[in-house]
Nucleic acid binder design. Structure first.
Lengths: 344, 344
DNA sequence: CAACACTACACAATCGTTTGCATAAGATCA
DNA sequence: TGATCTTATGCAAACGATTGTGTAGTGTTG
């Protein structure tokens, strides 16, 4: 049976100090390996701390230091492959530097995103890393961070209008261009396009790149075959049904994410459309599912680990050197690559 | 060009108090809607706070209140479907209650898990939710939480030995049993088994259930067809190659996760083995990939959302009512269901 | 040996919020 | 009108770690 503890509040450095007959300041310095403390005392302090079961109180030291060692993060959803990989890579890197990540999901809702920004702001995160919700076009909820000079980095889905923050994004224009070129090169002349909403930077740029590629090849896009919507499997099916309802049918589809591309493959299978002979499909993100379905789907790899590594570096630089925060905000673009598989 | 701010420290309640000619205590009470403050003052305070751009300092209040409103979480990896869904559901629920989640990944490493536990312990999280790393059999790193009466809940991968904490797990025994029964009922007589290591509660119980089912049907398991290892695709391929290297071949495989089951499907395709005629395959977790591959894989659904909802409820109860922490630790078991698809 | 430097520590203020207790002013009642 | 109660607010002490400044005691140098 466990004794019910008499709610004795926890061991603090003061308790250690008293037990050792030294001052709390000495204990604090000893625990932090401050060179002003003698080796002997440092050892005694650490042993006593261990013995008493002392645990550091990061609230107190955060308050005093005005740094929480916590980095806030807002992503649409962690279940998206790209973000899951990104987060893991970022977290591993930041862990080494002594930072913890507070990961929040906006569920692609702008209002949730606003609330989260405000909560993280109050929580005194040392920095904020954000990938925007699908329809966020107003960035006021991030202004507090820039005003207080708290490092703010957007990645992947970044503000479309000028906004004062660091940006690290994939080369979505090029991704769209690669996809378009690839469809053209593989002989498509009548292409359909299922994109995310243009409020979101990545879809906007992919669209521009894609259109540019088609334009170069003198391919005109049928407006009826273009969709700009949330890229769920269900939406994809609806659009596909519309596209293939008419007599004239496309011979190529660019889907702006792999969920949609996968839906297209399944739709084609259901309809008895031959891939890639009758229809070529290209997706985006290199989601593992794209390589599992048959036929495996051609897609664009965004290199989430590389992106995370750049975000981590930028973050660490900004956190280490306050003076960097004054200078101009930077923008980095991470290359993308086409992964050709069996749907093209 | 932005003006370089004169590093004026941020607005605190003291500043608001001075601006209004009241005391800081009054400001604090007003902001917290304490009924002891008149409506008029409350309004003035809130307006002034807004005007000055005040933001609550949760470090200070956490220190004073001895509660951080942060719940720690340690999971093997967020990229695992089950955990991603679980986390999202849990987070949505806790957000409503005013808690933030600090999500950490052990990457299935016991030593990282230990470090994370210690960090979260120092960070003064109000509670800890854990799904254990693959080979964790020693739970000392969680003892601090139980000693300090900090709510500690294990889910899915839980301690196998007696350990003083709340447990909410899937019915893995039943999952194994269902899988075994299903293979038996669909006519398998020679089955292979690819499991995770038995150090991990879920695999241990699935194994027991599975063996029980086979035993009932008088099916003897060939030891050479049983593997207990980390369930990566690569390991799966190696095991499959071993299993199918000999003349005598199995007619059924139970894979203890879907990654392995998917590998089996691909392996069979490569080898020209007919599914489900020559070989039946059943996986575990109902990962979306299982329904995408062809043929889609029969699997066991663990109902992550239901599990998250139970964990959330338990958490909230424990956080709200300290007295509950004294009473016995509870164990809940979330049902599993067989999802039959085309591999059986 | 005086002047100075250095080592190793202590003192006390500080970070911003919260809260038990005290208190002043006004209201109520006998 | 004095006693008691309410209401609205102020005072000051926490919470625990950190750090600039002060100061013994010892060592060094010319």
């Amino acid at each position: 049976m466990r004794q019910h503890k008499p709610e004795k509040s926890e061991i603090s450095i003061v308790d250690i100090a008293e037990a050792l007959g030294v001052s709390a300041a000495t204990v604090s310095r000893a625990l932090n390996d401050n060179p002003r403390i003698s080796e002997a005392t440092r050892k005694r302090v650490k042993e006593k701390a261990e013995e008493l079961g002392y645990r550091h109180n990061s609230m107190a030291s955060s308050l005093r230091n005005k740094r929480s060692n916590i980095i806030g993060m807002i992503v649409p959803r962690i279940s998206m492959y790209f973000h899951a990989i990104f987060i893991t890579a970022l977290q591993n890197r930041l862990q080494d530097e002594g930072y913890s990540l507070m990961i929040c999901q906006s569920n692609d809702s702008e209002s949730i995103e606003q609330k989260l920004a405000s909560t993280l702001y109050s929580s005194r995160v040392d920095a904020l890393v954000v990938s925007l919700a699908l329809y966020t076009e107003n960035y006021k909820h991030f202004e507090g961070f820039t005003k207080q000079n708290i490092p703010l980095i957007f990645y992947d889905r970044v503000p479309t209008k000028d906004f004062d923050a660091h940006i690290i994004k994939g080369d979505d224009y090029r991704g769209g261009l690669l996809a378009g070129n690839h469809l053209v090169e593989t002989g498509c002349t009548k292409v359909a396009y299922i994109s995310g909403p243009l409020s979101c930077s990545i879809y906007k740029e992919r669209t521009e790149g894609f259109f540019h590629a088609l334009g170069k090849a003198n391919i005109k896009l049928n407006k009826k075959w273009c969709f700009y919507q949330e890229l769920t499997a269900e939406n994809a099916w609806n659009s596909l049904r519309q596209i293939f309802a008419e007599k004239d049918k496309p011979d190529g589809i660019f889907a702006s994410n792999d969920t949609t591309a996968l839906a297209a493959v399944e739709f084609a299978r259901e309809q008895g459309i031959k891939i890639p002979d009758d229809l070529k499909i290209i997706g985006y993100s290199n989601d593992p599912r794209a390589s599992i379905i048959s036929p495996p789907v051609t897609t664009i790899d965004q290199h989430p680990v590389e992106m995370a590594s750049r975000v981590a570096q930028k973050l660490i630089d900004l956190l280490k050197d306050r003076s960097l925060r004054a200078i101009n905000h930077t923008q980095e673009i991470v290359p993308v690559t086409l992964v050709r598989r069996m749907t093209t």
